[in-house]
Amino acid sequence: MAPGKRASQADIAEKLGVSVSTVSRALANEIGISDAVRAEVQRVARQLGYKSKHPPVMGHLDKRALTLVPLNSAMGSLASFYHGIVAGMRAQAEEVGMVLDVRLVNEDMVSLDFIRRQIAKTGANGVILAGIDPDEDIAHWAHETGTAVVLANGTDPLMRFSSVAPANFYGAYQATQRLIDAGHRKILHYTYRHRPTILQRRRGFEAAIAANPGVTGNVVISNEHSSHDLLAALLAGDHDVTAVFCWNDGVAVGMVEALLGQDSPMPAGFSIIGFDDLPIAGMANPRLSTVRVDREALGRGVIRVLTNQLDGEAAIQQLEIGVSLVEGETVHSLD
């Protein structure tokens, strides 16, 4: 469509590869048009800025989101994390009249063909990938078809997808600075390689180290060294550090419990801090010091961003949800 030209039903029909009659009937909410086709026509009409004389159809015909949540995360140590995100999404979806179809999936199965099949089954006009990083095929398809896709607890460095995630960089910076403020000058960051969100935590750690002269930081990757290996190395004195910042609470709590059970405990003042503030952090004794992620706020933000896209917003949006320090009992002062 030429710049400045007012969108017509013919423009919508051409983009979708359907007849003008089909577009007209879909916009008029006439019978004989499937929910999926009606939703696609309405989506493209919004995207092109088409002004219809017919009122928009609200509810399930207008906004229906397919939400894919990785099964391993939903059942494993991150179960409460994703439960909170889904709870927030459901509450916000109900408020805006969006139907949310949540499906637990094996992350390895999430291919373009899989998503297409699920959309065909559900009639969804938007897709939410929770903790799932899409591949190039999905990115190309979303761009070519104009399908609204939002990453929940994810981010896309190439800015092909809108996303909502915790403020991972700044949260990690705060966690590291908390250890520095307690007098620690040699700090280890135990992290996980691959996901862009976790990489942001490493960058926050490194930025805090760089901003404090006289402080040194060491990074250990879990893909290369298990927590059991790291613990053994710490007890053997192989790492000259007085504090550890773990990329999540599950690892941090496990390390705290293991250290407490040792016959030869770590030196006085040794500190550990986590990230996420999962329920396990509050159940731990001593209570884990950590960074709190407002998971329900994250879920609500996902629906707001997706709603904007379904209403025609074309700009990629990267929304960060603020985090906060939780003063537990595992950060000790060396001063």
Results as ranks from 00 to 15, higher is better:
L151P: 10
L158G: 08
P166S: 06
Q177M: 02
G146M: 14
A139T: 13
H184P: 06
D156Q: 11
S162A: 10
A148W: 13
L158A: 12
V164M: 12
A175G: 08
A172H: 00
G154F: 09
V150D: 13
H140D: 14
T145G: 13
H189F: 08
Q174Y: 04
T176D: 01
V149R: 15
R185A: 05
Y173V: 00
A165L: 12
A182D: 07
L151S: 09
I138V: 15
I180G: 04
A175R: 01
A142R: 13
L151G: 08
Y173N: 01
R160Q: 13
G154W: 07
N153H: 08
A172W: 02
L188V: 02
L151M: 09
A139C: 10
I138R: 10
V149T: 14
A139M: 11
T147F: 15
H143M: 12
A139R: 14
E144W: 08
T191N: 05
N168F: 01
F169A: 01
A142F: 11
H143K: 14
I187N: 03
R185V: 05
S162F: 08
T176Y: 01
S162E: 10
I187P: 02
V164P: 14
G154M: 06
P166V: 02
L179K: 05
L158I: 07
R185P: 03
A182M: 08
I138Q: 12
F169D: 02
K186F: 10
T145I: 12
A142P: 15
A139K: 14
R185Y: 04
T147R: 15
Y170E: 10
R178K: 05
Y173W: 05
W141D: 10
D156K: 10
A148L: 12
N153V: 03
M159N: 15
T155H: 08
G171P: 01
L151I: 04
A182H: 07
D156T: 09
Y173H: 04
I180L: 03
V150F: 13
Y173Q: 02
A172P: 00
Y173A: 01
L158W: 05
A172V: 01
L179T: 06
K186N: 12
I180K: 05
V150Q: 14
G183F: 03
F161L: 11
Y173P: 00
L158V: 08
K186P: 11
H143A: 15
T147H: 15
T191A: 06
H189A: 06
K186C: 08
A148Y: 14
G146A: 14
A148F: 14
A142D: 13
Y190A: 01
D181C: 01
K186I: 07
G146C: 13
R178N: 00
A139G: 11
A167W: 07
L188E: 03
Y170C: 05
D156P: 12
T145C: 12
A152G: 09
A139V: 11
Y173R: 03
R178E: 00
G171W: 01
Y170R: 09
P166R: 02
A142V: 09
